[in-house]
């Protein structure tokens, strides 16, 4: 297994990760961080797991060329990661703060137990996105996906904001089955579509129209999203959105009571 080749030009630390084992790679990043490095450019990434995991610091920025492996940015607390291609499963797992921007599609179980920070995906996302996201006071995690989503979007969601812009590349459903199943907190904003069907919703949620407060939230977040992906904000924002909210914050409160 080749060692990672680290090179410093100006402020940016470039690492050629071709064939480098993930432990080696992540060790190189941590070593450079300790030495005061803030800007990273990871080249030739393919499948290396756990990139950015547990890293701290809002001024740290990691740009990735290639497809990073699972659990990208897990437990991350502050840094920004930009992925210039697709990404895999388990991104933003239990992430606390920071931002991850994926320019392609992303896989399953994104934002598992996420408690803060942002995950922006330009393309499609897989199954169980936003599963058990949570929030506390001002700490509200956000996931925005530009494409379509698989089944169990927002499953067991306890807090946070999930936005699906629902742009389709082909004839397909914008959103999967079991939408918001077990959801008991937070909110999902969806582009309005016939694909949102009553019999594909979790029984804990209902579809509602937006109020002023919702519109303000969307204004702010979509502006940021469109800026990051150089998209037309007005066009994106003018689409009709609906929201999905839990009808009870304790759906199973009485399950074992009687």
């Amino acid at each position: 297994m080749p060692a990672s080749k680290t090179k410093k030009t100006g402020k940016t630390i470039t690492i050629d990760a071709k064939g480098v084992y993930y432990r080696e790679l992540n060790h190189s990043i941590r070593t450079a961080l300790k030495a005061g490095g803030k800007e990273f450019h990871l080249k030739n990434i393919n499948g290396q797991r756990y990139i950015g995991d547990g890293l701290v610091g809002r001024d740290v920025r990691i740009t990735i060329d290639g497809v990073p492996g699972n659990d990208l940015g897990a437990f991350m607390d502050g840094p920004t990661i930009v992925v210039n291609s697709n990404a895999q499963d388990g991104i933003s797992n239990t992430m606390n703060d920071g931002k991850i921007i994926i320019h392609g599609d992303a896989g399953d179980v994104l934002g598992y137990g996420m408690r803060g920070g942002k995950l922006f995906v330009r393309g499609d996302v897989g199954y169980r996105v936003g599963i058990h996201m949570k929030e506390f006071k001002a700490k509200i995690p956000v996931i925005i996906a530009g494409g379509v989503a698989g089944d169990f979007l927002g499953e067991y969601m306890a807090g946070g904001i999930l936005i699906l812009l629902g742009e389709k590349k082909k004839n397909e459903m914008m959103v999967g089955d079991y939408l918001g199943t077990g959801m008991h907190g937070g909110v999902i904003y969806l582009k309005y579509s016939d694909d949102i069907k009553e019999d594909r919703l979790g029984k804990e949620v209902a579809v509602m129209e937006l109020d002023d407060a919702d519109n303000k939230v969307l204004d702010k977040l979509l502006k940021e999203y469109c800026q990051d992906f150089r998209m037309d904000y007005d066009k994106t924002r003018q689409q009709r959105f609906v929201k999905l909210k839990p009808v009870s914050h304790r759906p199973y409160g009485k399950l074992y009571a009687y």
């Binding site: 393919n46 499948g47 290639g66 497809v67 990073p68 492996g69 697709n86 895999q88 599609d105 896989g107």
Partner: peptide, 17 residues
């Protein structure tokens, strides 16, 4: 995993889940 495919076919014409 997608990376497992790209390891032997870096630029597929189509990739899907």
């Amino acid at each position: 995993e997608e990376s497992s495919i790209r390891e032997v076919c870096p630029e597929p014409e189509r990739i899907w889940h």
